[in-house]
Simulated assay, not measured.
Amino acid sequence: MKILEKNTQPENEVEGETPSVPMVMQWMTGQAHRHLLVSERQKFKIAIVFDHNCLEHMPAHTVCYPIVSACTNTVTLPTAHLGDYDSFKTNLQTAIKYGASFDRL
């Protein structure tokens, strides 16, 4: 049995863990499953918006997280602070894992 120091994560909650489909669906739509009926799958669309101007909205900040709106199936991805793929991936994983505080109606 491994003893964890204070403020450390257990091994099964590694920061770079790949999110599962149910995790992503729960974060984006509020439901952890995909549609079963083919007609519902064909109608289901997720809109992605890229926010290039977050510094104009909120000057002097250092990080933005993706924002989801489950009612409209829209995801807004910030781009100003994400210089490479690794920073984008970490940012998205954090938003999915702790997404309850990044969503809006």
Rank of each mutant, 00 (worst) to 15 (best):
V63L: 09
T90S: 13
K43S: 10
H81K: 05
L55P: 00
W27R: 05
I48Y: 00
S87A: 08
Q26V: 02
R104V: 12
Q26G: 08
K45Q: 13
T8C: 11
Q31W: 06
L4Q: 07
G16N: 13
N7A: 13
C64W: 04
P10I: 03
G30T: 02
M23G: 12
E15Q: 13
L82Y: 06
E13S: 10
T74Y: 03
I3C: 15
H35E: 14
F102S: 03
L92T: 07
Y98E: 08
E13I: 05
N73L: 11
Q42K: 15
K45D: 06
N7E: 07
L4A: 04
C54L: 05
N91T: 06
G99H: 02
W27M: 07
G99R: 03
F50S: 00
K97D: 01
F102P: 00
H81E: 04
H61S: 10
V49P: 01
V63A: 10
M25E: 06
P10F: 09
F50E: 02
E17W: 04
S39W: 11
R34S: 14
N53L: 11
Y98N: 09
H81P: 00
T8L: 08
V14H: 14
T8N: 04
E13K: 15
T62F: 12
E5P: 01
H35L: 09
E5S: 08
P19K: 01
V75A: 09
G99V: 02
A100V: 11
E5W: 08
P59Q: 06
H35R: 14
L105G: 10
T79D: 00
F102C: 07
A47F: 02
E13Q: 14
H52N: 06
N53V: 05
Y98P: 00
A100Y: 09
D51L: 02
T76Q: 09
N73A: 09
T76G: 05
V75D: 07
Y65A: 01
I46C: 12
M1L: 11
H81S: 07
V68A: 15
H81D: 07
P10G: 04
Y98A: 09
P59V: 10
G83Q: 11
D86S: 14
K6E: 07
N7P: 00
L77V: 08
N12W: 15
G99P: 02
F50M: 06
K2V: 09
V24G: 05
P66C: 02
P22W: 06
L105R: 03
D51H: 01
K97I: 01
G83I: 13
R104Q: 14
E5Q: 12
P19D: 03
V68Q: 09
F88C: 08
T79G: 01
T29M: 11
H81C: 14
V63I: 11
I46N: 07
F88L: 15
T76C: 13
K6G: 01
S101E: 08
P22Q: 03
K6L: 13
E56Y: 09
S20K: 12
F50D: 00
T74D: 07
V38C: 03
A60R: 08
W27H: 04
N91L: 02
D84C: 15
N7T: 03
N7V: 05
K6A: 14
H33R: 12
T79K: 01
T29F: 08
Q42R: 13
V63C: 06
M25P: 01
I96G: 06
P66G: 01
F50C: 04
P22V: 04
P10W: 09
D84Y: 06
